[in-house]
Write a protein that binds this DNA or RNA. Structure first.
Length: 570
RNA sequence: CGGGGAGUAGCGCAGACUGGUAGCGCGUUUGGUUCGGGACCAAAAGGUCAUGGGUUCAAAUCCCAUCUCCCCGACCA
């Protein structure tokens, strides 16, 4: 390919619309342009990367025994009603009507369609197990599209669904996908962290997320350096030392704290640390108010709280409810004398001499003793874990990181198969629900995550396996000898199946060097009169500081060697 | 939806407070000189100042409304 023939609209300056490195680079390197919020065109170069990534995914899915199919992106409302997700997912779905007035949605995911298909077509244990996958454009009306392809409203996803006769058989399918995911991300040159995750709107019992560690990541996670424990913050547990403090309780005392509603207000007013305060938050769980107590410097993890309460719905109480339950305006709630159930974080088990709200405007209580002064109905782990907390699996201490979720695998159980009547007959003629799993990779997001992880001040550093072209050739001379060397090089690159682009533009060398670095081709070959005078051409790997000078005849072997050491392509 | 910022030439920005000729850099076009890390000189093209309304002799500038985009939170691959 010739640079002048394709379409690579690079920018000299950083675009104003982009904040994080990968987003900025995708636009600057001419890989993509925004049409509207969360909607992007894939230019020729990034399309090549996308296709290479899809090929890797297909190879690994097929190797894992999954079968590719393709389902409609346009789906009838009915299947979503059937799984009862029309209301749960309703907000994120693009909805439309056909000319008959029938309701349709643009598929944000395909559990419903695939389960409906399987329910109709698979009847016998002889037909199982099966894992189907597709690579397809998904549509989600995101609350806030962000960071270019990182969170777009239209994006490419690989989704897979497994169907098994039993939980233990489903575990095998799950593991096969899990292993395939590890190979896929490794082949992309990505370092991923696999973390335990919450199942969210997908439902199901168990899931793992594949995270690309990056400061710009949207998810927080913790990991233990001493054992293998790692989890999304939404899910992460922590262990809390329960040794009793050798401090005796002082008498409870009410003090005036005019206007001090927040933890910061109160701690600076009293000149004490936030951790010596206890936050009292009023929630409504399944329609009934409950109070949650956490240390002043910690935040409630609502999912954990919901689990501890075994509640199916949970939300923060509104002002009126707080006023009614505590008898005080927002900001002064406290556990003393409260007549609703109280859940306290496990770390408060022996809390003494703390500061709490007094359930009275402009007043707090000093020297609160949780066992003496409050009626706690339940202690549990209800705060968001953070770095420094104890590991729940060993005696280590957790480290906190940020990550980009590029893949997610779920054990779904029978939630969807029961909703759609996806059942099979076993060898005894018994009718049983099919056990499912589902598995997603954000394909376009993965591409951006690669850039987020692999770039420097000059631009992108593509891993060879997903680079738009593996090599860029810069002809700096048009002498007959240089042209002959170029033609020979092209022929041998083609023979060796190294894809390349020749920068044939009428530009000065500096421009071509800058653009080559910006776009990030793994290999750069420079043919110039100066080096040709010594019978050499120049070869440089994008990530390396210096170039190698080799005879033209050794170019391809040198490139092959450098490519193979850059990143495993398997 | 709540909070914060921004819409002026293809891109990046100034101009606005204090109303009066729309500007700079990059890019683009033409000619010339240059030619291994975003060259130089000269000339040129390119604008409903986001949209609608209002105030005024006069609005990019002041006022009101709307739309769009970016960032922080709730959602997710």
């Amino acid at each position: 390919m010739y640079w002048s023939k394709t379409f690579i609209p690079t920018l000299r300056e950083d675009p104003g619309e982009a904040e994080i490195a990968s987003h900025r680079l995708m636009i600057r390197a001419g890989l993509t342009r925004r049409l509207a919020g969360g909607l992007y065109s894939y230019h020729p170069l990034v399309l090549r990367s996308l296709q290479k990534l899809e090929t890797i995914i297909r190879e690994e899915m097929n190797r894992a025994g999954a079968i590719e199919l393709l389902m409609p992106a346009l789906q009838p409302r009915e299947v979503w009603e059937q799984s009862r997700r029309y209301s749960i997912m309703g907000e994120v779905m693009f909805k439309l009507k056909d000319r008959q007035g029938r309701d349709l949605v643009l598929g944000p995911t395909h559990e419903e369609v695939i389960t409906d298909l399987v329910a109709h077509e698979i009847k016998s244990y002889r037909d199982l197990p099966k894992t189907f996958y597709q690579i397809q454009t998904k549509f989600r009306d995101e609350i806030r599209p962000r960071f270019g392809l990182m969170r777009a409203r239209e994006f490419v996803m690989k989704d897979a669904y497994s169907f098994d006769i039993s939980l233990s058989a489903a575990d095998k399918s799950y593991q096969a996908m899990y292993d395939a995911y590890c190979r896929i991300f490794e082949r992309c040159g990505l370092r991923t962290k696999i973390v335990e995750a919450d199942t969210g709107a997908m439902g199901g019992k168990w899931s793992h997320e594949f995270m690309v560690l990056a400061d710009a990541g949207e998810d927080g996670l913790v990991e233990c350096p001493s054992c293998s424990y790692a989890a999304n913050l939404e899910k992460a547990e922590r262990s809390v030392p329960l040794a009793e403090q050798a401090v005796s309780s002082e008498p409870l005392r009410k003090i005036s704290t005019p206007g001090a509603r927040t933890i910061e207000d109160v701690s600076s007013f009293l000149g004490c640390r936030p951790s010596s305060l206890i936050k009292t938050l009023v929630y409504v769980a399944d329609g009934k108010p409950v109070a949650a107590l956490v240390p002043g410097d910690r935040d409630v993890n609502e999912k954990k709280l919901q689990n501890v309460l075994e509640a199916s719905t949970l939300s923060l109480a509104d002002e009126a409810t707080i006023q009614r339950v505590t008898g005080a305006p927002v900001g002064f709630a406290g556990p003393v004398g409260l007549r609703i159930p109280i859940v306290a974080d496990i770390s408060l088990k022996h809390a003494v001499n703390r500061v709490v709200g007094a359930n009275k405007a402009d007043a707090h209580m000093l020297n609160f003793d949780i066992n003496r002064d409050a009626a706690v109905s339940l202690f549990g782990d209800i705060v968001i874990a953070r770095g420094g907390d104890g590991c729940p699996r060993c005696s280590g201490s957790l480290a906190e990181e940020r990550g980009i979720e590029v893949g997610h695998v779920f054990k779904l159980g029978t939630k969807y198969s029961q909703a759609f009547g996806a059942e099979y007959l076993d060898e005894k003629g018994q009718r049983l629900p099919i056990v499912m799993g589902c598995y997603g990779i954000g394909v376009t997001r993965t591409l951006q995550a690669i850039i987020e992880q692999q770039h420097d001040a000059n631009g992108i550093i593509w891993p060879p396996s997903v680079a738009p072209y593996q090599a860029v050739v810069l002809p700096m001379s048009s002498t007959p000898e240089a042209l002959r060397v170029l033609e020979t090089l092209k022929a041998s690159l083609e023979q060796a199946a190294v894809d390349y682009i020749v920068d044939d533009r009428e530009e000065r060398a500096g421009v071509k060097f800058k653009d080559a670095d910006l776009v990030g081709f793994p290999m750069r070959v420079v043919i110039s009169e100066k080096s040709l005078a010594n019978g050499k051409i120049e070869i440089k790997a994008r990530g390396d500081a210096s170039a190698e000078m080799v005879p033209p005849g050794d170019a391809v072997i040198t490139i092959k060697n450098l490519l193979s050491t850059a990143v495993p392509t398997r």
